[in-house]
Design a binder for these strands. Structure first.
Lengths: 340, 340
DNA sequence: TTGTACGCGTTATCAA
DNA sequence: TTGATAACGCGTACAA
């Protein structure tokens, strides 16, 4: 139970002052080689471990970065976390990981705790769905460096590192159009969540540029889960057959999985009766009986870029806010009729 | 850039002493309701955030737990992390996540940093492969509460929370035997890795208890990846058909996936020509054209139990070390002919 | 109910 | 090169 050794204790053992010991241990100059060696040896034998709480208290620097994510099991996040961890480790920082479980109240509490622990900066993937900027306005005013990644709150002038959802979404819609589909439905995410909005905009833009009409009845909010995808698809299929679309663009893969279930429930085959594409390249996408065409999200790169940006902000005070968009890649498989 | 407000500053604004403010904010009694309300209002308007560094310095308690994992992207760990996070959150703690990238040197450095940050306890999934206990001996002597989970160092008298690989492996072998298979092959992991060894032992025990012979030619080391599974299977199939086994037990699901590829390459169908089972319940297992029977590893429960155990150790000093083995569950699907 | 002194472990600053 | 002192922000123990 060797309680924690302090600089003072080492100093006493050696008949020196605390300051000399401190200087020796932190490699500041101005310590005679002889005493230095003695101190280092003693520190080791006594099992000294520096107290970063005390250090942080005086230096105002903790070498700790807080991360707030909405859902650890989301497959995007472990990978993003790997990217974050790598950069942060290189910079000599450590990570406090917090998890909001998709609840904005928990997100706020987590951030407050991170502030209390005096982290040097915070990386946030927000679970907020409302358009209420007030919390983040005040966070910004509090002066702590923070950035958003993946799920950003816009209009605040805070850096955002995300996947370029709009371009990815536009590309995959264009892909459907290139294959001759004209009647395309979109199972959308919540519109007030940025990725929901951007994916819709990409879809919209592709349709418009190709002079295709968007049918309001084919824009159905599904949310991000399978369950919602299934319900949304059922809704579309509840219309008379002649009013059905030819292809579906789901806001993400889970939503597409749910939709596929609904399609199968109606005895429809993919892509013959209806084509479908998703977004996110879930690990299951390529294993479906008809592998799903989708958009791959470079989660690792998002995490890496985000951590780099935050550390730049922390270390240089001239760093300005910017949005960094990491580009997606199309994963063309069978569900869109690509091989017809 | 409102620099951080302190109790003292609030006190000055109000013409009170620091202590009264401290008491009001921490809900200690002995503060008149009137002054209390005034203080709370002021604290809010000034944007006060308690400084946990200072708090921790005096209270010797940081409400922070360190976690050391070898590889974030391992799918087992994000899920375990979810379990850990849930328990830790309930207890009012936060998590410092560190990642050793399978390097023992990094693991040690991470632990030293966690000690310096004065975490209340540490959860370790070790990446050490050698039988050198010295580091963990000294960590134990340092008095900081810690436990191992999933990848344990044994013989130290430190608690270990892991999956019972041997029993799981025995159960799934028994399952094959119950379905009438007698000639069973095992694609094994590396024997010097504990899970490789334990899964082999479970297999061995089930075979012996049923009086079945183990054919040396049917024990092939495949490693933990698809590639190795494929090669191992090819090796078995290179023998004359009459010497083939009837069923395969692969050390994990990826290995089984590789083996399945090999089987398909030979035009064999599952389970008619050969049955196969895996281990780990990879997310892809149920999506195969013949869904794979496998053993589900309750990563979430491992994380949960481990966090609970650590917090017990932290909060009560009478808590003793113990090994907790979380039991696996069989996931019976089609690849073993269960539905014949 | 409120306030005063002191200490937690460390570093910055100035003096010796 | 070394040491004494104050300060970081807070809580304990005691006194008023």
């Amino acid at each position: 139970m060797s309680s924690n050794v302090t600089l003072k204790e080492i100093a006493q053992e050696l008949g020196l002052s605390t300051m000399t010991v401190s200087r020796a241990i932190n490699n500041k100059g101005n310590v005679e080689k002889g005493t230095r060696d003695k101190i280092l040896a003693k520190a080791k034998s006594m099992g000294y471990t520096p107290n970063y709480l005390a250090k942080g208290l005086v230096s105002k620097k903790t070498f700790t970065i807080g991360v707030v994510i909405p859902e650890i099991s989301h497959s995007f996040f472990p990978e993003a976390l790997r990217g974050i961890e790598e950069v942060v480790y290189e910079g000599g920082y450590q990570l406090i990981l917090t998890h909001s479980a998709e609840q904005f109240e928990r997100e706020k509490k987590a951030i407050e705790m991170l502030k209390s622990k005096r982290v040097d900066g915070i990386m946030i993937s927000s679970s907020q769905t409302k358009n209420d900027y007030s919390y983040y306005e005040s966070l910004k005013n509090s002066g702590i460096p923070f950035i958003f990644f993946d799920r950003c709150i816009e209009g605040l002038g805070v850096s955002c590192i995300s996947v370029n959802d709009k371009i990815g979404s536009k590309k995959i819609t264009q892909h459907l159009i290139d294959h001759g589909y004209k009647k395309i439905a979109h199972l959308s995410g919540p519109i007030n969540v940025s990725i929901g909005k951007k994916r819709f905009e990409g879809f919209e833009e592709a349709m418009e540029e190709n002079g295709l009409a968007i049918n309001d009845k084919w824009i159905v909010e599904s949310g991000f889960q399978e369950e919602g995808g299934k319900l949304a698809m059922e809704k579309i299929l509840s219309a008379p057959r002649k009013d059905w679309p030819e292809a579906i663009f789901a806001v993400n893969d889970p939503s597409a999985f749910g939709a596929i279930e609904a399609l199968k429930g109606h005895g429809l085959s993919i892509p013959e009766d209806m084509a479908i594409v998703g977004f996110s390249d879930d690990i299951r996408a390529e294993l479906l009986s008809t592998p799903l065409t989708t958009v791959k999200q470079p989660a690792y790169r998002v995490g890496k870029k985000a951590a780099e940006k935050l550390i730049s902000i922390i270390t240089s005070d001239t760093e300005h806010a910017e949005n960094i968009e990491v580009l997606t890649e199309l994963r063309i498989r069978n569900s869109c009729g690509a091989h017809k």
